[in-house]
Write a protein that binds this DNA or RNA. Structure first.
Lengths: 162, 162
DNA sequence: GCGGAATAGTCAAGCCTTCAACTACGCTAC
DNA sequence: GTAGCGTAGTTGAAGGCTTGACTATTCCGC
């Protein structure tokens, strides 16, 4: 531990960003914020489904039996337990998801995608994919797409626990 | 208009993502969400300043006279007018920002960074820069950093109005 | 079995963001 | 000068998210 790098917030001269690093950081930050915002807005406007809800529905649709434990669903949709619990309640009100007690574990709940939910997802998917294509893939060269993936995977290895 | 590409949400076979594109898209999306979340949490925990507020303070500190029109500040901090107005009110309560009527334009307001605000920013900056360095630059090769910048700038040209 | 620790999920309070008015001022033309 | 329109910024209500507390259940060691 503590091999030269100070613990975050600890003393030691800050390793400031130089001008080039600043530009790289800002370009990355702003572009990812704006892209996420744009995709979320377009999806919400045209389908009534926010990107967060869309992710939940996608994860359920890809799971065996179209159902997942609440905590697994939370992990896969990058959501906290609490946030997911609220979100599923709202999706339940729309009739797109239904809760079901878990056989194996009395503590657990299963979130199950209903047929109505699957239909709603099918309707939203083309809008989502068109957004990703037009605002992301259509803008980048094949080399940039490859680099984007490599950067993303590198960062994920660092950021994802375990 | 309508040169072969359907207007968003319109008919026409969706241009689905293939498996490689899926992986690139997911890697990018998840890594950027997780990184922003991580930086925001660390900054908030260690300094009491969220990343959104930090951005506002940075923009003010870099402006001439450490002041900006509300709408310019909103644009630069990727914030809606309304959101910024609320945020400035809370920063005012902390004594870090102060509102001032604009001489040239009676409709306008200037947000001015106070000395206390500047001091708070100075205290938070090392924490922020250490986060960006350790979670981003330390993880990537120089080639990846260059690619990240090029991708970000390409996307910004597409996403930013004007 | 049984007591304590860990896990799954929910809930309430408070903060943040969005949306849709709304006020106030400036600009232009008549 | 004043009507009409556009711009700058604020406000309040509604809903989403986070935090921390809380319940219920399971796991583990004895």
């Amino acid at each position: 531990m503590n091999s030269g790098v100070p613990a975050s917030g600890a003393a030691g001269e800050p390793r400031w960003l130089d001008a080039e690093e600043q530009k790289a950081w800002r370009a990355w930050l702003y572009s990812s914020m704006l892209l996420q915002d744009r995709l979320d807005r377009e999806l919400t406007q045209e389908t009534g489904i926010s990107h967060a809800y869309y992710e939940i529905l996608v994860q359920l649709s890809e799971a065996p039996g179209r159902m997942l434990r609440m905590s697994q669903l939370a992990d896969r949709s990058l959501s906290s337990r609490s946030r997911l619990s609220h979100a599923v309640s709202r999706l339940e009100e729309r009739g797109w998801v239904r809760r079901q007690v878990c056989e194996d574990d009395g503590r657990g709940q299963l979130a199950v995608l209903t047929d109505e939910g699957f239909t709603a997802l099918e309707a939203a998917a083309p809008v989502h994919v068109e957004g990703v294509r037009s605002h992301l893939f259509d803008q980048l060269s094949p080399e940039q797409v490859a680099a984007m993936r490599s950067i993303g995977e590198t960062l994920l290895r660092h950021l994802v626990p375990r």
